[in-house]
């Protein structure tokens, strides 16, 4: 059944390709065809639920940014995954599907907030989780978990308390074991070891 929907979609939308997946049927869709495909999926194929919108940053791979949509059909009780790659790496952009599924509104704002991916045609694309003036996109791969220094969202409070948004101290914090290297060096360690509590982080 999983292959069926993919091949049926391929007949109609020539530019989409099957996508490797461990569970649900999945397709890759180029950004220029996504708006048409989305409308058809909702109206004709019964995918009335947009469950999730998720950005992925593939780092060195091209294209770097991708938006992954998970659709759910209440009739067939099955999911469909659609991956839409952003054609541009510098200013990633895909068409918005707010008009098709209203729930995409917040999901797209979240993806914009976390990855800086813009959604063409979104009614009010602004940050949702971080504050409006926050300068970074935290889920991009080059952004460290500890964060970079910046200003508090409220200038008055920042002036009065002298507090800033600072990089979180990582010593003893989240740590992982690297996948490669000799066994003796694979013990868990802080992911970012360039600075510790004793050697403060260099100013950016």
């Amino acid at each position: 059944m999983s292959e069926e929907i993919v091949s049926r979609l391929q007949e109609r939308f020539t530019e989409i390709t099957p996508r490797e997946s461990l569970d649900w049927p999945a397709v890759n869709c180029p950004a220029r065809q996504w708006a048409d495909l989305a409308a058809a999926l909702r109206e004709e194929y019964g995918y009335r639920f947009l469950m999730d919108v998720s950005g992925v940053d593939w780092k060195e791979e091209a294209p770097r940014f991708m938006v992954v949509y998970h659709l759910f059909s209440t009739r067939k009780h099955a999911y469909l995954r659609v991956a839409v790659a952003c054609p541009e790496d510098k200013e990633p952009e895909v068409p918005s599907v707010v008009k098709v599924w209203p729930t995409a509104d917040w999901h797209e704002r979240e993806t914009y907030d976390m990855f800086g991916i813009r959604f063409r045609g979104h009614p009010e694309l602004k940050r949702i989780l971080m504050w409006e003036d926050y300068p970074f996109h935290p889920l991009r791969k080059e952004f460290p978990l500890a964060g970079w220094e910046t200003e508090l969202p409220d200038r008055e409070v920042a002036e009065q308390t002298g507090a800033k948004v600072i990089g979180a101290p990582m010593m003893g914090g989240p740590f992982v074991a690297p996948d490669e290297g000799p066994m003796s060096e694979r013990e868990p360690r802080a992911r970012d070891e360039t600075w510790t509590e004793k050697n403060p982080k260099p100013k950016k």
């Binding site: 490797e20 997946s21 461990l22 569970d23 649900w24 999945a26 469950m51 999730d52 992954v68 998970h70 999911y79 995954r81 992982v176 074991a177 996948d179 694979r186 013990e187 868990p188």
Partner: peptide, 16 residues
């Protein structure tokens, strides 16, 4: 398992 975590295959899944 403690040092390297449970070993998973490559791929992607969605579960609700």
């Amino acid at each position: 398992i403690v040092t390297q975590g449970p070993q998973m295959p490559a791929g992607e899944v969605y579960f609700e």
